[in-house]
Design a protein around this nucleic acid. Structure first.
Length: 548
RNA sequence: GCGCCCGUAGCUCAGCGGAUCAGAGUAUUGGCCUCCGAAGCCAAGGGUCGUGGGUUCGAAUCCCGCCGGGCGCGCCA
C-alpha cells in the first residue's frame, strides 16, 4: 500500500523545520484542514509558531521552509508545490491523481476501509449500561448503550481487542426494595397504600412481575424466592430491549459474585494492609483524601457490612487482573463522584494499577419532553420513557444514531413529540438515503460492482468530485481520532457531512452518462462513498439499507 | 456552601488555543422533478460564541471572577 500522503507531508515539513530552525524546542508541525477549498487540502502554521522564537517575520520563515522542502515534496509525486499565503501559512495541495486514487483504495479495501490493519496487543474493556435489575431500561441507558457499543466498535476498528461488559448490581438494598415491592403488590397492596414498602417501586412492571409470580405459584412468604424471580424477570426484559437495540455483551458480571468469590474480602484486607485505613465511630474508613477526594470514605459500616464502593473497587481490581490494560466505564454524570473514589481505592491498594485507571465516559442524562412538559426520569417514579418506547416510536436506527450524535457530556432534550412527528426527517434517514441512492444507481447500471476497483479514475476532475474524494480520504484519520478521544459522535457528524456532499454531487452531475469512461469513473466514486457510509454506519450499529 | 460538567442562530447541537473560526441541522422565506430515488438539491434572512477581566502576535477555544443551568456532596446503590 502506498504511504499516506498526509504522513509524508508532515514528515517532510518536520525535516524542513529541523534544517531551517535547528535546536528550537516546543515546535511541532501541525496540519489542519482549511475550511475553504481555495486554501488547499492541508495548511501548516508552523512558520507562525517559529516567528516569535526566531524573531523573524513568519512569511520569510514560511518561504525558507517552502524552498527547503520543495525537492523532497516533488519526489513524492503526491503533492503540488506548497503555496505561501496570508501571514505565513503554507498551503498544501494534493496532485489530482493522488486524490483520485483514494477511490480505488476504498473499493479495494471494502469493509475494512478505515480499519487499522495491524492488531494491537492491548486488551480493552468497555463497561456500559450496567443497569440495576430493578426496572426497565430508560433513555439514559439507551444513550449508554449507543455510546458504549459505538465506542467499542471504534476501538475494535483501530485494532484493539475489546470486551463489552455489563455489570449487574444485584446485591444491594435496591434489590431488597424490588423484592418487597413485588411481594406487596402480589398481596394486593397498591403503591402508597397501607403496608407499602418505604422506598417501593411503583411502576406497572412490578404488578406484571407480581402476577407472573403468582401464576407460577411461587411462595409469597419466601422473600428470597420473590427476589430471585423478580431479578430474573427484569434481566430477561432488559436483554430483550438490548437485543432490539442491537447491542450484545461478551461478559456479564454480577456484583454478588464479588462477595461470593471472596474478592470483596480480599480488597478490604488489601486496603487494611496498605495502612490507608482507620477506625472511627465503629466504622472502617479509607483515606481517599490522600488521592484527591474531598472527604474520607467508609469501607465497612458499623453494622459490619460494606459500602457499595468496596465491591466496585474489587471489581476493578478483577478487571486489572483479567489483563485489561485499559478500561472504559460508560456511566451517567450522576456517578461522577465514583470516579475519584474508585481510583483512590485502586491506588491505595498499591498493586501497580496506573493512576488514571479506569477511564470514564460520563454522559449527561437525557431530558425527555412530551406534550410540552418534561417527563421525569427516575427509577422509582415508574413513569419514565423506556428504551423500548423510543424504539417503537422512531425505530432502532433513528434512536441509535440520534443518541450517539451528541458529545457525551452535553445534556440534550429528546422531544418525543418531535421525534414522532418528524421521524421521517431524522438525520439518520439522510445518511441512509445516500447509501440507498448509490445502490439504486448501481442496480440500474447493471455492471459488476467488483470491476469498479479497476476503473480508470482519470476523468474525475470537477471540484465536487475531488472534494468528495478528499472527504473519503479523511475517514481513517477521523476514526482514529474519534477512538483516541473516546468520541463516537464524530462518526455521526462525519457521515452527515459525507452524505451531504454526496447528495450535492448527485444533484449537480449526472452519474449514468453516455461516455463510458466517465460513467464508470463516477460510479466508482459513488461506490466508494457507499462503502464508506456502510462502514461508518456499521460502527454505530445502524443499518445501511439498499432500498428504503 | 463545596466539587465536577455545561452556557455558540428561534430550537437541537458541532467546533475547544493559529488569523484560512462564526458553523451544521432544523424552523422560516424563495427557487429546482418530461431526466440516475424530491426521504434530495440551490439560495436568502438569522448569533457581541452567557458576562467582565487576564495571558498571547492571535481567544468561541487557555486562566480567574461573576451570572445562569445540570449532576453530585449518606455508615444508599
Amino acid at each position: 500500500m502506498a504511504s499516506d500522503p498526509k504522513f509524508e507531508l508532515a514528515r517532510i515539513l518536520t525535516e524542513g523545520v529541523a534544517r531551517i530552525a535547528p535546536n528550537v524546542p516546543g515546535i511541532s508541525v501541525q496540519l489542519e484542514k482549511p475550511r475553504k477549498p481555495e486554501h488547499g487540502d492541508y495548511a501548516c502554521t508552523v512558520a507562525l509558531q517559529l516567528s516569535s522564537k526566531l524573531g523573524r517575520s513568519p512569511r520569510v520563515i514560511a518561504e525558507e521552509l517552502r524552498q527547503a522542502t520543495a525537492q523532497a515534496l516533488a519526489s513524492t509525486a503526491m503533492w503540488q508545490p506548497l503555496e505561501l499565503a496570508g501571514p505565513g501559512f503554507l498551503n498544501a495541495r494534493l496532485v489530482t491523481a493522488e486524490k483520485q486514487s483514494i477511490v480505488r483504495r476504498v473499493l479495494e479495501q471494502g469493509a475494512s476501509f478505515g480499519r487499522t490493519a495491524a492488531s494491537k496487543p492491548e486488551k480493552i474493556q468497555v463497561e456500559f449500561v450496567s443497569a440495576n435489575p430493578t426496572g426497565p431500561l430508560h433513555v439514559g441507558h439507551g444513550r449508554q448503550a449507543a455510546l458504549g457499543d459505538a465506542l467499542a466498535a471504534l476501538l475494535e476498528s483501530q485494532g484493539h481487542q475489546v470486551t463489552r461488559e455489563f455489570y449487574y448490581n444485584d446485591a444491594g438494598a435496591q434489590i431488597q426494595n424490588l423484592a418487597l415491592s413485588v411481594q406487596a403488590r402480589a398481596t394486593g397492596i397498591e403503591p402508597g397504600g397501607a403496608g407499602w414498602p418505604a422506598d417501593g417501586y411503583a411502576g406497572d412492571y412490578i404488578r406484571e412481575i407480581a402476577e407472573d409470580f403468582k401464576t407460577q405459584k411461587g411462595d409469597l412468604n419466601d422473600l428470597e424466592a420473590v427476589r430471585k424471580f423478580a431479578v430474573a424477570f427484569l434481566r430477561k426484559e432488559q436483554d430483550i430491549d438490548l437485543q432490539k437495540f442491537g447491542v450484545t455483551f461478551d461478559v456479564y458480571t454480577l456484583e454478588s459474585s464479588m462477595y461470593s468469590d471472596g474478592k470483596v474480602e480480599a480488597a478490604v484486607q488489601g486496603l487494611i494492609a496498605s495502612g490507608k485505613t482507620y477506625e472511627k465511630d465503629g466504622a472502617l474508613w479509607l483515606r481517599t483524601t490522600d488521592y484527591g477526594d474531598d472527604k474520607d470514605r467508609v469501607v465497612r459500616k458499623s453494622d459490619g457490612s460494606y459500602t457499595y464502593f468496596v465491591p466496585d473497587v474489587a471489581y476493578h481490581v478483577a478487571k486489572w487482573q483479567r489483563g485489561f490494560a485499559k478500561v472504559i466505564d460508560v456511566q451517567g454524570t450522576d456517578h461522577h463522584s465514583a470516579v475519584t473514589r474508585v481510583r483512590a481505592g485502586l491506588q491505595a491498594l498499591g498493586i501497580g494499577i496506573p493512576q488514571g485507571y479506569p477511564d470514564y465516559v460520563l454522559h449527561s442524562l437525557v431530558k425527555v419532553m412530551r406534550g410540552g412538559a418534561e417527563v421525569r426520569i427516575s427509577k422509582r417514579a415508574g413513569s419514565y420513557v423506556t428504551v423500548r418506547d423510543l424504539i417503537e416510536w422512531v425505530g432502532r436506527d433513528a434512536v441509535r444514531f440520534f443518541l450517539v450524535s451528541r458529545k457525551a457530556d452535553t445534556e440534550f432534550v429528546f422531544d418525543v413529540d418531535l421525534a414522532l412527528a418528524k421521524s421521517e426527517q431524522n438525520p439518520v434517514y439522510y445518511v441512509q438515503y445516500a447509501h440507498a441512492r448509490v445502490c439504486s444507481m448501481l442496480a440500474q447500471w447493471g455492471g459488476d460492482p467488483g470491476s469498479l476497483a479497476a476503473a480508470d479514475l482519470g476523468s474525475l476532475k470537477s471540484g465536487k468530485e475531488l472534494q468528495l474524494a478528499q472527504r473519503l480520504s479523511e475517514f481513517p484519520e477521523m476514526l482514529s481520532a474519534a477512538a483516541e478521544e473516546l468520541a463516537p459522535h464524530a462518526v455521526a457528524f462525519y457521515l452527515r457531512a459525507l452524505a451531504g456532499e454526496f447528495h450535492s454531487y448527485y444533484n449537480a452531475e449526472r452519474i449514468l452518462v453516455e461516455d463510458e469512461a466517465l460513467r464508470v469513473a463516477r460510479l466508482a466514486l459513488c461506490a466508494a462513498v457507499r462503502q464508506t457510509l456502510a462502514n461508518g454506519l456499521a460502527l454505530l450499529g445502524v443499518s445501511a439499507p439498499e432500498k428504503m
